[in-house]
Amino acid sequence: MKSMLVITLVMVFVLVAAAAVVVYVAYPHRGEDVPVVPQLGDAMRKGVDALPTIGEFEDIRA
């Protein structure tokens, strides 16, 4: 019974993470506002801006 609870919680976490990725790719990544919850898009943009990333036009070959 305990293992079923763990599996259920992990699956819920996976679904929430997948939904967050889909929402990010569909709206803030393209520079648009999330229609129903614009605060979510703002929070996603702030989080992405805080993370170090490779620039779009940087040449990774030295």
Rank of each mutant, 00 (worst) to 15 (best):
M1H: 05
K2P: 00
S3I: 02
S3P: 00
M4C: 03
M4H: 06
L5Y: 07
L5K: 15
L5R: 15
L5M: 09
I7W: 07
T8A: 04
T8H: 01
T8D: 03
T8Q: 04
L9T: 10
V10W: 02
V10H: 02
V12A: 14
F13K: 12
F13C: 08
F13V: 07
L15S: 07
L15R: 07
V16S: 05
A17E: 12
A17C: 08
A18V: 14
A18C: 10
A18Y: 14
A18N: 11
A18D: 08
A19R: 04
A20L: 07
V21M: 04
V21P: 01
V22N: 09
V22M: 10
V22H: 11
V22T: 13
V22W: 13
V23M: 09
V23D: 06
Y24F: 12
V25M: 13
V25Y: 14
V25C: 10
A26P: 00
A26K: 12
A26L: 12
Y27W: 11
H29F: 11
R30E: 11
R30K: 14
G31R: 14
G31C: 02
G31V: 02
G31L: 05
E32P: 00
E32C: 03
D33H: 00
D33N: 13
V34E: 10
P35Q: 06
V36H: 04
V36K: 09
V37F: 14
Q39G: 13
L40F: 13
L40T: 07
L40I: 15
G41L: 00
G41Q: 00
A43L: 13
M44N: 09
R45G: 01
R45F: 00
R45E: 06
R45H: 09
R45P: 03
R45N: 04
K46G: 15
K46L: 12
K46W: 11
G47T: 03
G47L: 13
G47R: 15
V48I: 06
V48T: 12
A50H: 11
A50G: 14
A50I: 05
L51K: 14
L51S: 11
L51H: 10
L51I: 15
L51F: 04
P52C: 02
P52T: 06
T53G: 07
T53A: 09
I54P: 01
I54H: 12
I54S: 10
I54A: 13
G55T: 05
E56T: 05
E56V: 05
E56Y: 09
F57A: 02
F57G: 07
E58P: 01
E58Q: 09
I60L: 10
I60T: 14
I60W: 06
R61K: 01
R61P: 01
A62M: 11
